[in-house]
Design a protein around this nucleic acid. Sequence first.
DNA 1: ATCTCTTGAGAGAGCGCTCTCTCCACCCCT
DNA 2: AGGGGTGGAGAGAGCGCTCTCTCAAGAGAT
Lengths: 331, 331
Amino acid sequence: MRRPTLEAVAARAGVSRATASRVVNGQTTVAPDIRDAVLRAIDELGYVPNSAARSLVTQRTDSIALVVSEPGTRVFSEDPMFSTAIRSASMELETVNKQVVLMLASSAKSHARVERYISGGHVDGVMLISMHGADPLPSALSRLRVPVVSYGRPAVPVQIPYVDNDNIGGAEAGVRHLVETGRRRIATIAGPQDMIGGQDRLTGYRNVLRDSDHRSIVAVGDFTRESGAVAMRQLLRDDPELDAVFVANDLMAVGALQSLRQAGRRVPDDVAVVGFDDIEAAKYTEPPLTTLRHPVAEQAAAMVRLLLDLFEGGTSEPVILPTELVVRESA
Amino acid sequence: MRRPTLEAVAARAGVSRATASRVVNGQTTVAPDIRDAVLRAIDELGYVPNSAARSLVTQRTDSIALVVSEPGTRVFSEDPMFSTAIRSASMELETVNKQVVLMLASSAKSHARVERYISGGHVDGVMLISMHGADPLPSALSRLRVPVVSYGRPAVPVQIPYVDNDNIGGAEAGVRHLVETGRRRIATIAGPQDMIGGQDRLTGYRNVLRDSDHRSIVAVGDFTRESGAVAMRQLLRDDPELDAVFVANDLMAVGALQSLRQAGRRVPDDVAVVGFDDIEAAKYTEPPLTTLRHPVAEQAAAMVRLLLDLFEGGTSEPVILPTELVVRESA
DNA sequence: ATCTCTTGAGAGAGCGCTCTCTCCACCCCT
DNA sequence: AGGGGTGGAGAGAGCGCTCTCTCAAGAGAT
């Protein structure tokens, strides 16, 4: 009751295994009638090539590891960026018939597991989603002689192609919007400073305040709603007079809005709020959130293409995608 | 520059390939000194077994397909249930050293792809996340002689083990809460009626209204925020006097809250709202959402264990997990 | 001392496929 | 009519591993 082999197909079609293989792999050097006979045999037998045997000889696996190196599992579940990126990358790879092996690398133990797996030749390449600065994975993987690309600029300056959005420019645009609408005391809830996105968005904030002669008021969160709520309360204690806050991602902005509401501040009348990411939920907050949109799905798709380029022997340059200010009611 | 083989390890350790293989696979019939020699050789050479060769002979791959059959890609990205389930299943499989191959089956074309892939022997088993009733995948896969388990009860009565939560009981508890707090006109925003969760939650709603002599007022959404907002506007037109609404998931409840706000209704004073799922965002709505909590992560983990049982030859029974009413401010 | 039994290690087949090499047959050119 | 060229098909090696079978050597029993 085991699955039919190429041998069986060849026998049924009355040809050699080599010819059957040619048909399966779409080579054109097979006479039409023989090709048809083989195809019929394949159909009748329900033949499907054995992938292990195939990749044993071709040294290819046609699968790609998608490594999500995210220590905070909560963030992974709640931040739609991750699932959007995963979905988009997955769909893009589907078009070239490659499989996605999903690996969550949350702990040091799983890092070792990922490294072992990848060096085991299970996959042809690696896509890395890691915003974490201290993450040893980018450099570890780049040493493995396996094609690696990254979603987001790796924190350590390692030589792997990546796709990122313009975090600094986006943050600047957001804060500039607050300045231009006459806000005087503009605080920020920054992301984790060991994440590249967290750092860059804070840099953008600082750039604009410096140039426009405002004072900076900073609290730091970890990109969760909860941390946004906590940071907002902190900011209100630090400077009760603040009239605007630039929040490094929408999830924290949602938490911040709640804290502002609980503190009796009206948004945007008393305090303007600008987020970052433009997640779907941003349209449904009270009031709807002004935020920076960046194309997560495109970014993931671009990452896939970068990897495919690498397979072709190309040496890919980093890609930076633009962000766009979406003005709603919160600022 | 190619990777070392077992042959090389054996040569370096001065033993046969068979003995080296025994050490690699942890068999105990190897003398300690020889074992050490082999381990040293492995270490020095940086040997990692070739997975293709191994699974060619063992007929195992140690990877599991996680098939997410979700036509609405928007829902996949925005509903944290999916990522929570994926993360939890992934972590559970990690403990038994199996890999997750993620497959998104959104279109008919990708259905064929999934079937082909799975019948290609790439994976040892399949976990199916499919809430969609008309989905041909459960029955198709169960025909493939591959172990299959499902997250959520399959719509068609096919003989595959599954883990689900008590949708009917949960909905009943939610609606009963509305009845008991004195609401008279209790509407519902139901989920898609081609999804089992959508059906069951509507059934629960109807059960309670029938028993307590209330009239049912139904609108149907598709589990997205947007559809919740649309459905709520519809309900308000249908029955401006309604004073409560049971919404089949939290995402739609978020949309419903927005529509209620825009219509000038106060929650819960004018209209009470009960959701379903208890996603993280439910704590951050205005007002925070009363909802039914069910253990998504546990459900996914239980699904994994069901599959592992199947590998052991066990014949697993469906598992139903309880839901819990979480009372916040919206009802 | 001989025989049986156990333990530990090697030989070698074979998993299912790809791909190079070889060969055959036919066509065109001179 | 003969020779070189070309297209199409087969033979067979080998990818790296596991696992059965076989065998050698030593322990224990008679």
